[in-house]
Every structure is written in structure tokens, then in C-alpha cells.
Design a protein around this nucleic acid. Structure first.
Lengths: 220, 220
DNA sequence: GCGTGTGAACTGGTTCACAGCG
DNA sequence: CGCTGTGAACCAGTTCACACGC
């Protein structure tokens, strides 16, 4: 006797599938905006460079979608992903480190889904804080714990310089953040199993691209 | 009779290994800066959350490192990765799309390795171009082909809004770019096998983080 | 026909385990 | 002994192949 349908847990879904489902979700939002009502696994696959059978397999991890064999209903599939991946509830976000890149992210926050509202910015330098013109509340680094707790911020994007990241991450985690995107050029690892960290690095991406290009051209 | 040592091609190295090697390379640069001369596979692994044997396997794809059984020489390993992954030659970079995020990236370009120099910025709006204060040369979008060719720019970071990405990517590719990092919130795919594209999206990362957090807490 | 859903088969990348060297 | 290097074993995730519904 096992749990069925809605109740089944996704905990044994492979992480790559979860990531693809998040990408699919973003694509479905676009389709919805364009007024497209139904979409096939192969269309999704083409758009995201994922084989159609992989799309179908990923979707099948979500459980029952109900019958409809002429492509997925954009709305239904989007709703299902949202529900099963717990993407419905809005989460407060903060930006830590307000150098050029940090400010850029802060200011482009309106491009994020409205589910991820930027609620605060932090920087080590009070002088710096004063020069930044924005309507968002800005605070010095040492107020992370107070503010993150008060505003129940759950996600953070960190763009400080190397020497500050670990400290900032520790403070964030202590204040109950559940996920961190680090964009500092160095990598940090999570000290706790219940806090997830993603490291992004433009240099790393540029390196991978040049390596791939160089290696693929090398083999004729 | 097969090719040996220096000559062996990396073309059958798994792509995940190539990516890890690029991350290892970044770490080694840090170690070098800190004056650390030797480092073990387990140290590297701990720093990057990669198992030590995977680090060793990845390194072994590079071929001969020469004998030294008490950890890797930071300098030698860095040199080897650089050479085998063709990371030595500097590559010109441009930023396409100068909204908040684009300007942030443009302005934080000095944080990139000096191998990746930003040589130009592009935006659709001439008005916008005029308001941006920078020493870097800025151009309207329609000059991509001319400028990219002239300056032999090989890599691009694109942060335009959705509707412009594909056009911009097409122009970039036509002008000989070998890799594109798209940071537009939507995904684009490469029309050519010899041009590599990486899609980055902050929203996607935030979604993955909340999904992982929600799912892992769900299973007690 | 075209499309999804899914157990079963497969495979590339990871992991193991141990030889070899300092 | 610790640490690298690597063929062989393994397995998670992908891919296949086919049942079923429109």
C-alpha cells in the first residue's frame, strides 16, 4: 500500500529532473503570456534542447496530470509543476554586496517573477549605501540577521568580494535563509544539509565556453 | 600506435569533467594568489564539493602531469589545465544589452580574469547609450557585426530583453563569436554545432533552490 | 496518425579498489 | 603510509519501446 497521486513525494526525483522542470516552468510562463494553450513534449524539448522523452519522463515524476493526449495543457502543467515543486508561495529575496553587479541585480529585480520580490540590499560600506539611489531599503552588512529575520527573507543573492562571502553566508543561514545564489567568482559550500547554495560565475562560464569551442574545433 | 601525452586529444573527455576542470582552475588561481604551492585532490574536492576520486579522474583526462606523489603542484596543475583546455589565449568579450544588469556586468568587468577583457557594449537604445558613463566604447545594436569583427571579439554576454536575444545572438554568431552567455531569463539554443551557448537565469536558480529546499524538508 | 505515460534496457559518468611511486 | 593514477565495476539518470487514448 503506497501513497498515491497528490500525496506521493518527489524526494526520489533526480535533481537534474527538478532543474529541468524549473526550466520547463519558465517556458510555460512564456507560452501562457503568448496565449498558447497546449504544447507537446517535443515542442518543449526543442525550445530547451531536451529530448522529448526526457521531458515526458520528467513530467511523469510529478504524478497524475489527468487525461489529455493531445499535448499538455499549458495551464495545467504549469499548475502541477508549481504545486508539486512548491513554487507557489512567494519568497522574499535580498541582495548582499552592492558593487556594480549587485546594484545591477537589485535594480533589475522587477524582472524576476513577482514571486521573488527583493526586499532589501546590504553592503559593507555605509558610504556606498548612501550613493545608491533606489526605493528599496538598504542596510549595512552587520544588520543582515536583524533584517532577514524581521522581513522573513528566505533567499539571498550574494555578490560581495571574496573575503566577505563566507561571513555573509553564515549570517544569512543563521537567520533562516533556505537558499543562496553566490555570484562572487569563488565557490562556497553549504555547511548545512537543509540550506542549498548555487555558485554562479561569469568567468567560469566564459572558460567553459572557450574550452568547449577550442576542443570541438580541435577534433576537426 | 596511438598519440601520447601532449598530443592526446581531450575530445572524449566528458563535458561535466571539463566544467569541473574549469572550476578547479579558478580555485588554483586563488591558491596561487595565496601563495600555496601544493594541494591534494581531497583538498580541492572539499573546497568544491567534488569527491576526491572524481578530481583525480578529471585530472587524469588531461594526461601526464609528471611525477609528484605528494599532492599536485598548484602551478603545474594550473598550467596543464590551461594548456590542455586552451585557456591561455586571451579572448575579447562584449556585453549586449545595457539595462541595469548589463551595465552592472560591464562595470564589473575588471573582476573577470584579465584573459577576458570587455571590449565593447551594445544596446538597442541610443538614448540609453548616452546616459551610461564608462570608458568602454558603446554602440547601437545594429553595429554588432561591424564591431565584433573589427575587434575580433570571441565571446558575448547577452542581457537584452527577450524579444532581442535571438536577433542579437544571430548577429553575434554571424560575426564569428564562439560562445555566448545568455542572461535574459529565457533560453536560447545554438543554431550551430561550433558555437556554444550557456543560459543563466537568476529566477530559474531561485526556483531550483526553493524546490530543493521544499522537497528536502518535506521528506522529514 | 499523433500524442502521453512508463517499466525495462542501456550507458556514460562516477565510483571503487588497488598498483605504483615518493 | 599518504597520495596519485587508472582500468574495471557500478549505477543513476537517460533512453527506448511500446501500451494506450484521442
Amino acid at each position: 500500500m503506497e501513497q498515491e497521486g497528490l500525496g506521493r513525494s518527489l524526494s526520489r526525483t533526480p535533481q537534474p529532473s527538478i532543474e529541468r522542470l524549473c526550466r520547463i516552468f519558465g517556458l510555460l510562463e512564456e507560452f501562457e503570456r503568448e496565449g498558447i494553450a497546449a504544447v507537446s513534449s517535443s515542442r518543449i524539448g526543442k525550445e530547451l534542447s531536451i529530448p522529448a522523452h526526457t521531458v515526458r519522463k520528467d513530467v511523469s515524476f510529478l504524478g497524475e496530470l489527468g487525461p489529455s493526449r493531445l499535448g499538455y495543457s499549458v495551464g495545467k502543467l504549469k499548475g502541477l509543476i508549481q504545486q508539486r515543486l512548491k513554487l507557489e508561495e512567494p519568497r522574499g529575496v535580498c541582495v548582499v554586496g552592492l558593487s556594480e553587479l549587485g546594484v545591477g541585480l537589485l535594480r533589475s529585480g522587477h524582472l524576476l517573477s513577482e514571486r521573488y520580490r527583493i526586499r532589501a540590499g546590504f553592503d559593507a560600506s555605509v558610504n556606498r549605501l548612501e550613493t545608491i539611489r533606489t526605493e528599496l531599503p538598504l542596510y549595512p552588512l552587520h544588520m543582515i540577521r536583524e533584517v532577514v529575520t524581521r522581513e522573513s527573507i528566505e533567499l539571498a543573492v550574494v555578490t560581495t568580494e571574496r573575503s566577505w562571502v563566507r561571513r555573509a553566508a553564515a549570517d544569512l543561514i543563521e537567520s533562516g535563509v533556505i537558499g543562496i545564489v553566490s555570484f562572487c567568482g569563488c565557490e562556497i559550500t553549504s555547511p548545512r544539509r537543509d540550506v542549498w547554495i548555487t555558485n554562479l560565475s561569469l568567468v567560469k562560464e566564459l572558460r567553459v565556453l572557450s574550452a568547449l569551442a577550442a576542443l570541438s574545433s580541435e577534433s576537426h
